[in-house]
Design a binder for these strands. Structure first.
Length: 322
DNA sequence: AATTTTATGTGTACTTCCCC
DNA sequence: GGGGAAGTACACATAAAATT
């Protein structure tokens, strides 16, 4: 059986994703909700939410026997999450997008001209921002790298990473401050899911200072990479959120800001070809093909665990009653 | 020397397939 | 259908490699 996360009692009623204007989740910023079952096109409907979604559970980070500062960081983020903070909201939304970009989370090798950028944070950062997102499975016979298919772990782990790295009071930053800026075991645990320096830079929340961003990047403005200042991230986050709710193409534009045109287009493919404004129209005439797994999950009422295929992302999914 | 990444093996949970 | 073998996917531990 799937690791069914437990739903707190007071939130036992399954949150409804807004289907029309009458749904109370549209107007109630406090009402419980889930993020993983949304489509990208539905992201603008939850921008007012103050709380983390119900499916944001620490268990999805599989902390196990991780060192105490790691689990402390997860608990700290859950306790301090503030939906009114642009950075927090951005972190959550981007974590969702990141989980849908998977497994295309890798990148090619360093270009030949990387050394010409040495010394220029601007050049290297702008370069990394444009590097293509490619599947991380490059080993010939063996399958793709492990740990990149389930979406909920990404959502919990990316959100936590961005928020914690952006706040000097987080247990993670305090650990770094006491350990010469090393992220410690955090690097390996999250790096196995491609939550690493390179992708933080590529998503626009961090600077790359040295070609070592392609190697074993150490943290610090004197080394390979560092987070942008909170005010810079906040400005970026505001722009992202503003794009997201700007118009019918908001989700595309916001995805493009963070992940680039290619990813935005590939995630958007289906809805563009079917005439754009499918949002709010309810049923689509030709429902996208579902994976076997998805079908099983629907049958088992595990829709909240649903992992959408690319083609489904922008579709307005018909909700089954639960 | 320190830090991060990559590779490999083990255990576990689930899925798929196949045979009865 | 049921039930077991084979296959898939993951976390975790450990070791090794790469880079600064």
């Amino acid at each position: 059986m799937l690791p069914r996360y437990s739903v707190p009692q007071e939130q036992a009623a399954m949150p409804r994703v807004p289907r029309d204007g009458r749904d109370t989740t549209l107007v109630d910023a406090e009402a419980p909700w889930c993020i993983n079952s949304l489509t990208i096109g539905e992201l603008p409907t939850i921008l007012h939410k103050h709380k983390l979604p119900n499916d944001f559970l620490i268990s999805h980070a599989s902390l196990g026997s991780a060192e105490s500062y790691i689990s402390a960081t997860y608990h700290w983020v859950i306790k301090h999450y503030d939906g009114a903070s642009p950075i927090h909201k951005f972190a959550l939304l981007v974590s969702y997008l990141f989980s849908r970009v998977a497994p295309k989370l890798g990148h090619g090798g360093a270009p030949n001209n990387i050394s010409t950028m040495k010394g220029s944070t601007k050049d290297i950062t702008e370069h990394v921002r444009q590097v293509a997102w490619v599947p991380a499975a490059e080993t010939k016979s063996s399958s793709s790298r492990k740990g990149v298919t389930k979406t909920l772990p990404f959502i919990v782990m990316i959100t936590t990473t961005i928020i914690a790295l952006s706040d000097p009071l987080s247990p993670l930053r305090k650990y770094m401050a006491a350990h010469n800026n090393s992220l410690g075991p955090w690097s390996q645990k999250h790096g196995s899911k491609f939550i690493n320096a390179f992708n933080l830079v590529r998503m626009g929340v961090a600077y790359a200072h040295a070609p070592a961003i392609y190697g074993s990047p150490k943290y610090g403005s004197m080394h390979a990479w560092s987070m942008k200042a909170p005010l810079e991230i906040a400005a970026y986050a505001k722009r992202f959120i503003s794009l997201l709710k700007s118009n019918a193409n908001g989700p595309y534009e916001a995805t493009k800001l963070v992940f680039g045109t290619t990813i935005a287009s590939s995630l958007n493919r289906r809805s563009v070809s079917s005439g754009g404004m499918s949002r709010g129209t309810g049923l689509s005439r030709s429902p996208p093909r579902q994976t076997f797994e998805n079908k099983r999950k629907r049958e088992h009422g595990e829709i909240e665990e649903l992992e959408l295929t690319d083609d489904e992302l922008f579709e307005v999914k018909r909700r089954r009653r639960l």
